[in-house]
Structure formats: structure tokens, C-alpha cells
């Protein structure tokens, strides 16, 4: 089924972090601890799975050239695509606010351990990236777009949890001083990205 194939590809081949390096900032800061990484990954997946289809509907029924034709013939020439960036970011920021409120209500411990990174989801490049790639790739329908959002989120989650697991073990290694911390994390991410490239041949 096309949606399943799309999800698998978004997770392994076109991984938000390893193929496009989107969402690195919060990833680098939070990936020291598997539990926090997992919590953040789930939040990101949730936001992506909902904002991509919403922005898809907005893109196809309001924003792109000729999208407003359903309102009436006279609107067929209208091209509101110049506002797409603003609208996408507005949707994402609103959603992040919503997720923040939900997490605060249902899991105060997760809320406090995520701290500043929860509102930072709004400016997480991978979330906006999901919507921008959706705009570029012209998916056939909203179901496929949702599958893409979900798959991208899971891919990000996989990357960040993987990194956290490796970094937890790295505490016991003998890293040269100038490389400690940030430097070795970059090299690690690069190596993991190289590893993920081996998935390029997947054909589901």
C-alpha cells in the first residue's frame, strides 16, 4: 500500500535528521538521555502528524495558485502562495501551544523534564520542513500527506533516541579533549547518517 511504503521511506531513507539535518538544534541538546529523547520524539511526531495534513488542506484549498476556485469562478486567478510561510508557521505555533497544554495537564513530570524544549518544538526545523516538503512534493491526497507527517516524525524519534542511547554509552569513552561533547556528537551523527544511507535500496 502506498501509504505504508511512504512511511517506511520517510523513516529510513529520507530521515529528517540523517538525510536533511532538520531539527538538529534541540536534538543535540536533548539527546543525552534516552527517556527525555523519547518524550520529545513522541511530541514531535504528534505535532508533525497533525500539522502536515492541516497545512496540506490549507495549501490545496486556500493558498496555491487557483486553489480558491471552489469559492467561485472569479477567484480562480488568485494566488495566495506568498502567505504560505506565515500561515504554516502560525498553524505550527498554535499546535505546539496545544500540545504544551495537553502535556502539562496529563504528564507534569514530562512537562518539567522537557522544560524549554517543548515550546521550542514550534521552531524545530523538522516540523516546518515537513510542511515545506509537503508543499514541494504535491501529495495525491490528505491521507498520504498524514502518512508522510507521521513517518517523518517517527524517523526523527528514531534518530534522536538512537543518538541518546549512543551518547549515554559515550560517557565511558576516552574522547580527545577538543572533541568532547559537541564535536564527537557531530561526528557520531555523521557516521549514523552514513549508516542510514544503506537503507536507500529499500523497495516496498
Amino acid at each position: 500500500m502506498e501509504a505504508i511504503s511512504l512511511i517506511v521511506r520517510s523513516i529510513f531513507v529520507d530521515n529528517m535528521i540523517f538525510a536533511y539535518f532538520l531539527g538538529m538544534c534541540s536534538f543535540l541538546a536533548v539527546s543525552k538521555n534516552v527517556k527525555t529523547a523519547l518524550g520529545l520524539g513522541i511530541a514531535v511526531t504528534f505535532v508533525l502528524s497533525l500539522t502536515v495534513p492541516i497545512n496540506y488542506m490549507l495549501e490545496n484549498y486556500v493558498l496555491k495558485a487557483g486553489a480558491l476556485e471552489w469559492l467561485g469562478e472569479q477567484f480562480a486567478e488568485v494566488d495566495l502562495s506568498v502567505f504560505s510561510l506565515l500561515i504554516f508557521i502560525a498553524v505550527i505555533a498554535s499546535f505546539t501551544q496545544l500540545v504544551e497544554m495537553v502535556i502539562e495537564r496529563f504528564s507534569p513530570s514530562l512537562y518539567s523534564s522537557l522544560g524549554i524544549f517543548l515550546p521550542l518544538i514550534a521552531v524545530n526545523c523538522s516540523i516546518l520542513g515537513g510542511s515545506l516538503f509537503m508543499q514541494q512534493r504535491e501529495f495525491a491526497d490528505v491521507g498520504i500527506a498524514t502518512a508522510y507527517g507521521f513517518g517523518s516524525g517517527i524517523g526523527w524519534l528514531l534518530a534522536i533516541v538512537g543518538m541518546a542511547a549512543v551518547r549515554e554509552k559515550l560517557e565511558y569513552s576516552n574522547v580527545p579533549k577538543p572533541l568532547k561533547g559537541l564535536g564527537i556528537t557531530f561526528i557520531l551523527t555523521g557516521l549514523m547518517a552514513l549508516g542510514f544511507m544503506s537503507f536507500a535500496g529499500i523497495n516496498i
Binding site: V13, A19, F133, R137, A200
Partner: peptide, 8 residues
């Protein structure tokens, strides 16, 4: 193409 994987 518009969004195919770079290098592939």
C-alpha cells in the same frame, strides 16, 4: 525533478 533524493 522536484524533490528526489540528492545523489540518488
Amino acid at each position: 525533478h522536484q524533490g528526489e533524493t540528492p545523489g540518488l
